[in-house]
Nucleic acid binder design. Sequence first.
DNA 1: CCCGGCGGTTTACAGCGTAAGGCTGCGGGT
DNA 2: ACCCGCAGCCTTACGCTGTAAACCGCCGGG
Lengths: 248, 248
Amino acid sequence: MAEQDEHQDYPDADAAVVQGGEAPSARTPLSVERVVTAAVEFIDEQGLAGLTMRRLGETLGVEAMSLYRYVAGREKLLDAVVESITAQLDDDPEVLQEPRDGWQDFLVRLAHGVRRVALSHPKVFPLVASRPLEAPWLRPPLRSLTWVELFLDALRAEGFDDDSAVGAYRAFTSFLLGHLLLEVSTHGADVGPLDVLEEDEEPGGLAAYPTVARLRSALSEDHSALEFEDALDQLVDRVAQMASPKVP
Amino acid sequence: MAEQDEHQDYPDADAAVVQGGEAPSARTPLSVERVVTAAVEFIDEQGLAGLTMRRLGETLGVEAMSLYRYVAGREKLLDAVVESITAQLDDDPEVLQEPRDGWQDFLVRLAHGVRRVALSHPKVFPLVASRPLEAPWLRPPLRSLTWVELFLDALRAEGFDDDSAVGAYRAFTSFLLGHLLLEVSTHGADVGPLDVLEEDEEPGGLAAYPTVARLRSALSEDHSALEFEDALDQLVDRVAQMASPKVP
DNA sequence: CCCGGCGGTTTACAGCGTAAGGCTGCGGGT
DNA sequence: ACCCGCAGCCTTACGCTGTAAACCGCCGGG
């Protein structure tokens, strides 16, 4: 924990920043983005429970209190974290802002986009589900007004009436939340503080549960990708059925 | 918050305990059950973030460290809490331990039972989803070996083959988790520390989102009960389709 | 030249989980 | 009758947390 020599002034920190170069020990000035993305990386690696203002500051080469100049506190930081990862949706080229090849295609692309977000940050995703919502008409994992608007507009434009669009919104979010939460939770243990997950293996305890014991391997297999596709197809069917009399 | 007069010795605490009476300020001896149910009540009222060993001790008229004689620590306490509320399933008379009127009826009853658990402890239920699992073949909200065994046996007994039973298990849990998590999250705000939820109401912010603004009331309506029934029906249909060649 | 404020640090405090040990009263062995 | 052990609870203490408040060096503009 020796604090580096901080006596020399970095010759051209600004230039380095400008040219995008990440000088080895250059002290890029802090910023909201830097803090938030550092937090995301931290949670990805150490889990939510490991995230501490002091430790986060450490990874940024800065004292804890410095972070408060950019975020209002730990809670707000977590809000910013979920907003940050869900913002990946906006830049996902596979995800459309409005339907092009029908609403089914729109929904499928959106679902895949959200799934990519979830899988790319398994330890962060539970936050998307559990953070308090800022409005009653928002539902995780679609937590931004922008996307709700986009979603509803897309369906309306494809011939859904108001109630059907809202129903589809509800069905879609429930589906995504259930599937993705379970997928990430099996895919890298939940918010473990920093447990080394000791492979205890007490299959003797399974003696009383013969069926589970017999199906153990089948139960442990990971078919999440295919199951997601299947369930998504069925969801699209369900949405089609709840649509106004007839949609293309 | 004045601390009560604690100078008098309770005349007949033992007698009170013996006769089963809950004397007003009698000091019933602690026990795991008492600690855990107190924790459940605490979370129900104050939210998870408000639960503190010291504060929990306070509500039990005891110092924080006394709790450690009955639970191994806060984390273990939380585990016990989720186990405690999910144990309501075992005593639910509507829920069957094995199919009686077909597997559909069995599934529907089980789903309703889990829903009752979730709705009776909205602030606790997210824990059921987010606590790390103790085995990879367990999936929330069915977190106990017992129920997984019961579930699989039920389907097997009704003619499902192994893979179909496992598939149904997966579909069933995803469905329940998504729906119930969203239902409780709208139904009483998430894990707010002890926020007084100030009705800010900034509908001006909705100016940029005309569709959301127009459908605001529709989006805020709570049809969760009916939606749950609908979705449950559809799930049963899906499960039927994934079953072995033919099941009744 | 001064001087304001940006960006960071230092110090401080209350509250947290929990390890370790102390006190007290009760039940049983001798 | 004595004493001992121990169950049940309390006290103290430590390291860690989030964060309020004050401080300080530097840098750009009057």
